[in-house]
Structures are given as structure tokens and as C-alpha cells.
Amino acid sequence: MKVDKMPLPPAQTELRATEVGLTSAAEQHRAYVQADLLIIPLIVMLFMGIFSFHFALLVGDWDYWVDWRDRRWWPLVTPLALTVLPGVFGYLLWEKLRLPLGASLTILCLTLAAWISRYLNFHLFADFPMNFVWPSTYIGLGLIIDCLLLLTRSFFWTGLFGGFAFGLLVYPLNWPLLAPFQVPVELHGTMLTVADLMGYEYIRTAIPEYVRIIEESTLRTFGEAVTPLTAVFAGFLNIMNYWFWLWIGYLGSKAIWIRKIV
């Protein structure tokens, strides 16, 4: 839309070079490009670092080892910890910049950092085979959250449907990758999975029992109902979890100035 320019006195209408930083639209464009070139890598690096650190210390072993991806804790712990950064930075990116990228971008950054670390540290440094320490895939969960946010433009509906789906789908999303490791084998008269057998072969000295079957209790006799039950429970919990971290994101994105600390 074009409008008539009002012939107001220059002193009232024009921004002076002593008051603003730039003298032309071309310079303004260059300044924006420079800001983008600084801020975008900064955000990506921070997401890679923060998410990797947070995920390592809250999910850690459940994602490091293929035999730890059990039916009780892995599908429950993972979405609860994985939702944190999509919630916090999803709020920032959507509310302040109108970018529905928070979940996809943070999870993509985590995935990239995880692959680099698993290869450099767990494979090259500590000599574990890659098919024992590959990272799970979660990018699809981020896409669901962001697509729902874009379509509904509502944190409420995104949390209700996206948060639920986020918890529900961790296991099915990874099933094609995980299935070969769940094939049963017999060792000395005991039935194990391939993943369990790998856990026996590659002893991890910092696990309390050194070697053990990760699934405990009566879980192994419960049959097929355990996985969907855990997934649905994780989905319900994750609805509130997503909303909670959105609120933390709201607090974190406040531009608060104070006069002094004490």
C-alpha cells in the first residue's frame, strides 16, 4: 500500500544521523545481513551445546546404548526431557520472531551434535561399534509440533495434540531402526535380545552391575501391552510438560533490566 507523504517540518519528521546508526536503506540492508550472519550460527551452536548437555545428563544412557532402549523408561524419560528445548525456544521463536521452527531446529541441532559425539567419542575414542551407540531419531516429533503450531497458531492446541503425539510416537518412530536389535536369541539356555547380547559383550564399567538385562521386574513377562501403555502414559504427561516449558520460555524471553543484584 502506498500513501501520501505528509509535508511535515523536517525537524519533526526526519531521523538525523546523530540519532540513528545508518544513512541509507542499502546500509540498513547490510546491517541486517550482518546481524543475521552473526545470530543464526550463534543460535545453532547454542542449541547444539545446550540440548546435547541437557539430554546427556537427563536421558544419557537411555539414548547412548541400544540395549537401554527398553519399554519402560526409555519411551517415558525421553519425551519428557526432549520436550524442554522445543518448549522453551519454541516460545521464543514463535512469539518474538513468528518462526514455527523451535522444535524442528532444536531437535535437528541435537541430532547433529549426537551423531558427531557418538562417532568421535563412543566409536573412535572408546571403541564401541556404531550399531551399539547410534542416536535415536526424533526429528519427526519436532516436525509434528511445529506443523501443529503453524496450523493452529495456538500453544494450547499444539500442547494438547502435539505434546501428546510427541510422547506417544517416540517408540513407533524408532521402531524401524530398533527392530533388528529386538530379535530374540538364546545364550546358554537364556533368551535374550540381540541388544542384550551386545550389552553382555561390551561391558560398561560404570553401570552398577557391570552387565545386566536392562528391562527389570515383571516387565519381560507382560507381552505386547507394555509399549503402547508406556507411550500413551508418556503422551498424557507430555501435554502438561510442553505447556510448562512454554511458560519457562515465556520467562526466559523476558527482557528484564535491574538496577543492581543486591
Binding site: 551452536m45 551445546g49 551434535a113 558427531i116 559425539s117 568421535l120 575414542f125 564399567t205
Partner: peptide, 23 residues
């Protein structure tokens, strides 16, 4: 940010991997 990534991801998880093959 780059220091944060290097320290929080590859350097931190080198420690995670190390602990699992040593006492």
C-alpha cells in the same frame, strides 16, 4: 556459542564414553 557447543557436547561426552570403559 561455539565454545559452549565444543565444551558441552564433544568434550563432555568424551567423559561419558571414557567412564564406560575404565575404572
Amino acid at each position: 556459542g561455539i565454545i559452549a557447543y565444543l565444551t558441552a557436547s564433544p568434550v563432555t561426552e568424551a567423559d561419558a564414553a571414557w567412564h564406560q570403559v575404565t575404572v
